[in-house]
Design a protein around this nucleic acid. Structure first.
Lengths: 151, 151
DNA sequence: TTGACTTTGACTTTAACTGACTTTAGCCTT
DNA sequence: AAGGCTAAAGTCAGTTAAAGTCAAAGTCAA
């Protein structure tokens, strides 16, 4: 198993056990999980981004910390979707799309069925025929249009 | 016996033994079966396609993998969809897509929500960025892949 | 002998991981 | 206060470990 997944798992558990907020000390955690400190930054920047529904704050120096908070989507589904649609630009890569969809799904905004459907519709596999330079743009268009049918 | 068949056989056995899902490491498998890594891609793309009822996911980079899942048709609806998927060729125009979808919808095979979603995903409007000559092909691919998630 | 299917390997892309170096905050000493 | 020491966290570019792509060459049956 990848170290990144171990770290991510550890943080997720902390989030679950406390009320959606985890405060860690970078060096200490790195040490206890047997990785290099910057690995923690890597994990956070690849798996706990704002797009994925987390807020990260931190402080350097003596007594420093990293605090990760999971944002609960409380707003109504329609406006959540509108918000996503507006925040997606003219271009969207596959990984980002998947992350957004997983998030919407785990927050109950869209069903598993819909998640799978849209995931399939914007997957790289499906777009191999379109010229590479256009793929992310086409993906963004498809993605937004499909989401919009749900509002 | 061809190497491709050995590889395909190996993967099929994995699928049978586990619960219809096989996760492999490309290089490792290639090595243990005595072929070149890209052979695995060839086998997958020629024998484990969507039309043949498989879903393939993968991840690159350290700790990467290829996961192949066999879709099993449990429901009657599943086989209707499978039939449609197989009857759609490499190319599909918007009108035909819409007709098929409306049919599936009015026969209760797919919901209105799903109908709207797929319709949006294969609409001409969404594909304006892709070169005209490719549009119907891309549409067919998207269409089939989306439908397959419903089986 | 031709055309579809297979095999191969060189090259590309992506994700994970690492460590040297930088920046920041608190504390202590004067 | 000011300056320096120390204990954090941040950055970034470079390395490694995968999987993906593609076109050229090989095989084989009709």
């Amino acid at each position: 198993m990848r170290i990144s997944d171990v770290v991510a798992e550890y943080i997720r558990r902390m989030l679950d056990e406390s009320d959606g907020t985890a405060e860690i000390q970078r060096n200490e955690l790195a040490n206890s999980l047997g990785c290099v400190p910057s690995q923690i930054n890597y994990v956070i920047s690849s798996r706990f981004t704002q797009e994925q529904g987390y807020v990260v704050e931190s402080r350097r120096g003596g007594g420093g910390y990293i605090r990760i908070t999971r944002i609960r989507l409380t707003t109504d589904k329609g406006s959540v979707i509108m918000h996503i649609v507006n925040s997606v630009g003219e271009s969207l890569d596959e990984l980002s799309a998947n992350i957004i969809l997983e998030n919407l799904c785990s927050n109950g905004v869209i069903s598993q069925e819909v998640t799978k459907l849209i995931t399939a519709g914007v997957s790289e596999r499906v777009l191999t025929q379109v010229p590479k330079v256009l793929r992310n743009e086409v993906r963004a268009t498809i993605f937004k249009n499909m989401l919009l049918t749900l509002t």
